[in-house]
Write a protein that binds this DNA or RNA. Structure first.
Length: 279
DNA sequence: TCAATTTGACCTAG
DNA sequence: CTAGGTCAAATTGA
């Protein structure tokens, strides 16, 4: 058990290293417009990434099936079409969240742009906490009955860190933020076509979130790469915005790929390398 | 004009 | 009663 777990951790580290390298390569591709050598390198790296993460999840699942079911149930939801006992009769629904709701946390240097559209609906000062807590729900709660919510709270001042807690899953079907449109006014049409081909090869399932990527409590130990330090997302200055957005878009693509690899793993439990040779 | 945010009121679990 | 999660009227801003 411990041996497999160590293996899994090594795979995770390798995958992350590849992802970082891929980020650098793709960033170069985006700037140089076209370079076949770099393209080939990025393709190979994507293969490595997929294999590493797939193997990791296989190992984890093999020996920690029950635990995984709990921790990663948002990936393979045990969709018990539970009759909703709490809100059925409530004209003004329960103000307290049901304990059965799935949650997962993420600590980050900046408020997370996770590709979903959120709408702030509340803010509270928290006892013994220096900072207030913001409450967000999915923008499509009304038009698509998407029940996903999240809470964001700043937890540290010095190395600014924010804790984001997600509740529930997105049931909305809004992929505009993740998938590039062919007609989008991107100056680097070459790079956008690469991303499009990835998305076509692995169509994103209706749940677009990939929270397990961010749920590792020891994540920061493996994240000291330039990829991280440059992707300061929303709060970056206008001059650095373009490069920052490029990184963000790439991370969105990685989220989608990773999500699909897990999805495949779940449905084809015995295919150890479900993506080998596909790219 | 209308959607998003702000913010005090409202509501419930503990 | 308190803390914190949610509502919704008022405000903001594109």
């Amino acid at each position: 058990m411990d041996h497999d777990r160590d293996e899994a951790m090594e795979e995770l580290v390798r995958g992350r290293e590849c992802a970082n390298k891929l980020g650098q390569v793709l960033a170069a591709v985006m700037k140089n417009n076209s370079n076949h050598g770099e393209l080939a390198a990025s393709t190979s790296l994507v293969n490595n990434i997929l294999n590493s993460f797939t193997n990791t999840l296989f190992l984890l699942k093999k020996h920690h099936q029950m635990q995984l079911k709990r921790d990663f149930s948002f990936i393979t939801p045990t969709k018990s079409p539970h009759e909703d006992t709490s809100t059925a009769a409530a004209g003004r629904g329960s103000y307290k969240r049901r304990k059965t709701t799935e949650t997962w946390d993420k600590i980050s240097e900046s408020p997370i742009d996770d590709g979903h559209q959120w709408r702030k609906y509340g803010q509270k000062t928290i006892l013994n906490s220096k900072y207030s807590r913001d409450y967000y729900r999915c923008t499509h709660k009304l038009d698509q009955r998407c029940e996903a919510t999240k809470q964001v709270q700043r937890v540290e001042e010095k190395p600014a860190s924010y804790k984001t807690t997600y509740y529930g899953h997105h049931t909305c079907k809004n992929t505009d933020e993740i998938i590039f449109e062919p007609t989008s006014p991107l100056s680097h049409t070459n790079s956008s076509s690469i991303l499009l081909s990835f998305n076509n090869a692995y169509p994103t399932p209706n749940k677009q979130d990939c929270p397990f990527l961010s749920s590792s409590p020891s994540q920061d130990e493996f994240m000291s790469s330039p990829l991280d330090t440059t992707s300061t997302l929303s709060s970056s200055s206008s001059s650095a915005k373009h490069e920052s957005d490029d990184h963000k878009d790439m991370m969105m693509m990685m989220y989608g790929l990773l999500y699909d690899s897990v999805d495949q793993l779940d449905h084809h439990d015995h295919s150890f390398h479900p993506f080998l040779g596909l790219l």
